[in-house]
Design a protein around this nucleic acid. Sequence first.
DNA 1: CTCTAATAGATACTTCATTTCAGTTGTAAT
DNA 2: ATTACAACTGAAATGAAGTATCTATTAGAG
Lengths: 156, 156
Amino acid sequence: MRLTANRIAGILRENGYKLTPQRHIVLKVIASSNDLLTPDSILEKSRQEDPSLGRVTVYRTLEVLNKLSLVCKVHSEGRCGSYMMKRPTEHHHHLVCSGCGKAVDITNCSLIDIEKKLSQESGFEIKGHLLEFYGLCHDCVENTPTIHSNKGGTSR
Amino acid sequence: MRLTANRIAGILRENGYKLTPQRHIVLKVIASSNDLLTPDSILEKSRQEDPSLGRVTVYRTLEVLNKLSLVCKVHSEGRCGSYMMKRPTEHHHHLVCSGCGKAVDITNCSLIDIEKKLSQESGFEIKGHLLEFYGLCHDCVENTPTIHSNKGGTSR
DNA sequence: CTCTAATAGATACTTCATTTCAGTTGTAAT
DNA sequence: ATTACAACTGAAATGAAGTATCTATTAGAG
């Protein structure tokens, strides 16, 4: 089951948020993409429909959507703070293409068991984990793309 | 085996980098901490020893250390781009305290096997993964701290 | 000691995000 | 429909984090 922009619009209203034309545009942009989107690319796409739409509105809408757990905030390679529509409702992670931003959901996460063991060993009260896989999708392997930057290593 | 500031200084020189007093200070700050440090906190601590030390120098030193794989770049909760000395030389991940930044190394990572399976299923050429656990260390559970910000969820 | 490429810090700039504020609007109640 | 108001919008100012440029300085090889 895929969350459409209209379905999300309903959820917003149910939670006491107003449904403005601007929000509807931003929603549509996010909901209709399979890729990871930066706030800036969301703004750009939204302005194709309403050129006067403000940057602040994008950030505010993302904040609301994040609060309602309707979007996933992803770190990705060299680019933190990108977003995509939440597709599986259960706990999951992502495999993101460093080339084009395409994202695949990974739902079979076995780290919660590991958390328990870690918790005992370390004395930490573990609140959660961050897991992302990154690489190149089939198309980008062939086309050797240069869109997403890939500088600087992360902890691995 | 723990990397000391002096040992790292040697590695720098072996790789053709000069060992300036400023770099030595920055090194000492990172090497003598068990916690995750933001560039800003590294600057602050370094300035306790040399108040004229510049922000740019911190970034440049971190860049060099990262290039030589002497530090780990960690994303952590709501705070990307923090650093800590690399302790195990092999592939590993971190458990980070959202309260005080304390970090524990996790060396038994089984995700590389999963990567292979994922690669076959998705058609992606997987380059790596990002995994971090976060929570509160024993001290911070008791003292209910407020140092590190904890706003906004990440993908989990 | 001398020489030079590497480095430091000052300054300016860029990018990304947040705050503030005055005017506008969705929507629930009349 | 009309009204009333809290929620919302965009412009502009501000802030935070990191980068680029330039000149003076210096680590360290010879």
